[in-house]
């Protein structure tokens, strides 16, 4: 069973989400099955058209697009959180799957963790 890495913090205002992505990348580097779940304010990672040149940070939109290349299994987004932040499905990348973050979802994974 795969590990679920959960990101519930929005990008740019803090580093925890980036460090969660690094955890997912490193599991993938060792061929350990891993998926990502975006929930709460974390769904703001999934908005398209992020232009970060003014804040001198790397674009998490571009960083996250490497996840499927590295073999991260699923990129999940909590449906209610997406509604709350006005992120509609057409705006989500093809690789992102809408889901309901609940006990049934958690039961599909052997472990679940935040980066901080």
């Amino acid at each position: 069973m795969a590990m679920l890495i959960i990101i519930d913090q929005p990008p740019y205002g803090g580093w925890t989400g980036r460090e969660a992505l690094d955890m997912a990348f490193s599991l993938a580097a060792f061929d350990q099955p891993v998926s990502l779940l975006f929930i709460g304010a974390g769904v703001n990672w999934l908005r398209t058209g992020q232009n970060t040149s003014g804040i001198e940070q790397k674009s998490v939109e571009k960083n996250l697009a490497a996840a499927p290349v590295f073999g991260i299994e699923d990129i999940l987004a909590d449906r209610i959180s997406c509604e709350r932040y006005g992120i509609a499905p057409p705006e989500l990348a093809d690789s992102v799957v809408l889901t309901d973050a609940n006990a049934e979802l958690l039961a599909q994974y052997s472990q679940a963790a935040f980066a901080g």
């Binding site: 519930d8 709460g40 973050a101 006990a103 049934e104 979802l105 958690l106 039961a107 935040f114």
Partner: peptide
């Protein structure tokens, strides 16, 4: 996260 936890409680 308190609310997220309650939401994923089985």
């Amino acid at each position: 996260r308190f609310g997220e936890c309650l939401g994923m409680l089985g």
